[in-house]
């Protein structure tokens, strides 16, 4: 079940990341075009930057799920195959740790329960909590900053699923290999 969700999710993320990468280039072309026609559009750069940031988090989630990552494999290469699976396990555990930590931090930051229990009243929420996250605005787009920020809780949640799935996989791998060695 977890594997199924994780696989589906990663396809969605990859597609969305590619779309965002295309959006970056298209927006910049729009910027060049509109400016040269003397109708410079104020918000294009900021939107392109958000598309890039979204690409980054989505692609990172995909890369971590597929283990297509940049890492120092010096020690792993030195040690034999028997330890390899165990290091993989530890490594997956670290990724899960990060994902969970980010999830918790996002939860604290966005404080959705307090926000909801106050009926999503921004003024009341920031009066109570001194947390101004929901009233922050983007510089030029004229929308609330919370919309682009939402990629963070999404990323941490999705990464948690992927990492948990990978961890279970490598747990099987590690115990199997160990069994074989014994």
């Amino acid at each position: 079940m977890l594997g199924f969700i994780s696989d589906r999710l990663v396809r969605l993320e990859m597609g969305l990341a590619a779309l965002m990468a295309a959006a970056v280039t298209l927006l910049i072309l729009l910027n060049i075009g509109s400016r040269s026609l003397g109708m410079a559009i104020y918000w294009v750069d900021e939107l392109a930057i958000y598309a890039m940031v979204w690409t980054t988090f989505l692609a990172t989630s995909v890369a971590l799920k597929r283990r297509q990552v940049v890492a120092v494999t010096l020690l792993v290469d030195l040690l034999g195959r028997g330890t390899h699976a165990w290091i993989q396990l530890l490594c997956d555990l670290m990724i899960l740790t990060f994902a969970l930590a980010l999830l918790v931090l996002c939860w604290r930051w966005l404080d959705p329960v307090t926000f909801a229990s106050g009926g999503f009243d921004i003024k009341a929420f920031q009066g109570d909590t001194f947390n101004f996250v929901y009233s922050e605005k983007t510089n030029t787009l004229g929308v609330k900053k919370i919309w682009p920020w939402l990629i963070l809780p999404f990323f941490s949640l999705s990464l948690t699923l992927h990492a948990l799935n990978n961890l279970l996989g490598s747990l099987k791998g590690a115990t199997c290999v160990k069994g074989a060695v014994q």
Binding site: R35, G38, M39, A40, Y42, D45, E46, N139
Partner: peptide
């Protein structure tokens, strides 16, 4: 400042 320059007919660019 954006509104001011828009009003002058310029294209304010951040």
């Amino acid at each position: 400042i954006r509104d001011f320059y828009m009003a002058t007919g310029a294209a304010p660019t951040p």
